[in-house]
Simulated assay, not measured.
Amino acid sequence: MARTDFSIGRVRQAVFSPANLPAAIAFVVLLVCAVVADQQNRKVSDQLARADVLAKVNIIRAKLEGNINGNLQLTQGLVSAIVTEPYLGQQRFASLAGNLFEQKSQLRNIAGAPDLIISLMYPMKGNEKAIGLDYRKNEAQRTAALRARDRRELVFAGPVDLAQGGRGFIGRIPVFVPTAGGGDRFWGIISAVVDVDRLYAASGLTDPAIDIDVALTGKDALGGSGERFFGGSNVVAGNPVTAEVEVPSGSWRISAIPKGGWPAAPKNERTLLALMALAGVLVVLPILVAGRLFGERQKNYAELRRLSGRLELALEASGIGVWEHDLA
């Protein structure tokens, strides 16, 4: 037991020797530097990851805005024609609207609703169920239709379930025609239905090669306070990158995170740790070796002084003199 205690004492004395103090200080300084460097590396890595996701989000945002505005701009020409021909019939309406579908777009159909009741449609095939729909009696579409009329501005709503089946975004444009007295009167609403799936595909949201998860919030162009209508709840809850998609009469909020979530550690973490460990060895080890050599030197000096003291004591006790002579 005594031998064990003695061995432990020797180990402690070797570890906590003053000769090891410079190496211990260097180790602590390097450890602090390593912690700071790791924190900075994580911060920079996170910023780069978010910047990469934001760049991809901005591409999708630009495509969404471009496609939506392009579809609605096509419809504005039809509105101008109706202002000059307020009593046009289905045949004339189909002829004018048919020209719009020759352009590349995501339009599904265009409906005319004089006095807020749909009676004009293109294409008619597949959309017959929508004929006769009264916006004032339709719970899902009444608010947006009346808002377009009352504000005299285009209102973009959706996605909504369509009477003829499927889902779409609807741009409702109020039409006011001139009267004989120099004013105008409300004619009705032209509704341009944008196909949901085709818009998503054209904007890159459903691209299989996309490496980010995206969510869209703001149904009926209500922005971040609106209802989420595309993507999972995990995106919104996953500290996402966000951007505003400007649509007529409002906005959507687009949120995105990398597929599988944000990386838990930087990609270069192992390399950085290896470099810091190597730097620690290259700095601390030479200091430790030098400290040990310095300690051995001091120990030898102490032993030499002890022996010299004994010799002086012996000489004094014996009365023997010691002379030094330079033979040269």
Rank of each mutant, 00 (worst) to 15 (best):
E139N: 02
A140S: 11
T143M: 04
T143G: 05
L146V: 06
R147G: 02
D150K: 14
R151H: 10
L154H: 03
F156E: 03
F156H: 06
A157C: 00
G158E: 03
P159V: 01
L162P: 00
G166M: 04
R167G: 08
R167D: 07
R167H: 13
F169G: 02
V175K: 12
V175I: 15
V177E: 11
V177H: 10
P178D: 08
T179P: 15
T179L: 07
A180Y: 14
G182S: 14
G182A: 11
F186I: 10
W187A: 12
I189E: 03
I190D: 00
V193T: 08
V194Y: 04
V196F: 11
D197N: 10
R198F: 04
R198I: 03
A201F: 15
A201C: 14
S203H: 07
G204C: 10
G204D: 09
D207Q: 13
D207H: 14
D211R: 10
I212A: 07
A215M: 09
A215H: 03
T217C: 07
G218Q: 05
G218R: 03
D220T: 13
D220K: 13
G223A: 00
G224P: 12
G226V: 09
G226S: 09
R228P: 11
G232T: 11
S233L: 10
S233E: 12
V236N: 00
G238M: 06
N239W: 10
P240N: 05
V241E: 01
V241G: 00
T242D: 07
